[in-house]
Every structure is written in C-alpha cells, then in structure tokens.
Amino acid sequence: MNNPKQSVEKIEELLKAARETNSLFAHAAAFAAITALVDKLDRYFKEKAVDADENVERLRSHSAAMLGYDITNGHSIKQHYVWALDAISGLNDALSRLRN
C-alpha cells in the first residue's frame, strides 16, 4: 500500500457521500470500494501496527451495517456512521504514531 492515509481519507469521503443518498447503486459502489480499501488497510496494519486491528474491524463492520450489507443490531444508520468515523479516527491516530 503506497499511502494508507489517502485510503483512510477516501473511505471517510465515501461514507459521507453514501450517507447523503438512498441509492442502492451508490451504496453498493461505496461498499465495494470501502471493502477493497479496508482489506488493504488490514494487511498494512497487520505488518506495521497490530494494535490498530480493532479499529480496522470496527470500520469494516460499521460501514457494512451503515450501507445495508450487514446487520444493524437495532442501531440506526447514523449511529453506525458515527462508529465508523470513530474507527477512522483511531486509524488516523495509529498512522500518526507510525510517522513519529
């Protein structure tokens, strides 16, 4: 992975854009792109920062639930969005620690 920071930023952009529409196609496209990016981030963090693993899994789970590709466990789309953003924040923190 050339730039994990760019991948994290792109995931955040995709989640925001998907949140602003109810289009099944847009959600499917965002889910596919996010899944590919999260898989790359997962491999990157397993090599560089194993402690980020929980946030990778949280991002994977909450983004899938938000986009309709996993169960919501009774939580709102908005709540899953907030949890996904929290996971992104944790990944950004891990990236900052790696740069220092």
Rank of each mutant, 00 (worst) to 15 (best):
K5W: 02
L41A: 06
A33H: 07
W83L: 13
I88D: 02
M1N: 14
K78H: 12
K5V: 07
R97H: 08
R60N: 12
E9Q: 05
H75W: 04
R43L: 14
A84S: 11
A87N: 07
V82G: 10
A84W: 09
L95I: 09
G74W: 02
T72C: 06
G68D: 00
N92T: 07
W83P: 04
M66N: 04
E9S: 12
V82D: 12
S61W: 10
Q6V: 12
A87L: 10
N2V: 09
N2G: 02
L24S: 14
S7W: 05
E9A: 13
A87H: 04
S96P: 08
N55C: 10
D53P: 02
A17I: 10
I88Y: 02
R60I: 07
R60A: 08
L85R: 06
E13Y: 03
D42H: 11
Y69A: 05
M1A: 14
N22G: 14
V50Y: 11
L15K: 05
R99C: 00
L59A: 06
A32D: 06
W83H: 09
A94M: 08
N2Y: 10
L24K: 01
Q79S: 10
A64V: 04
F45D: 04
R43F: 05
N92R: 15
A26Q: 13
S61Q: 14
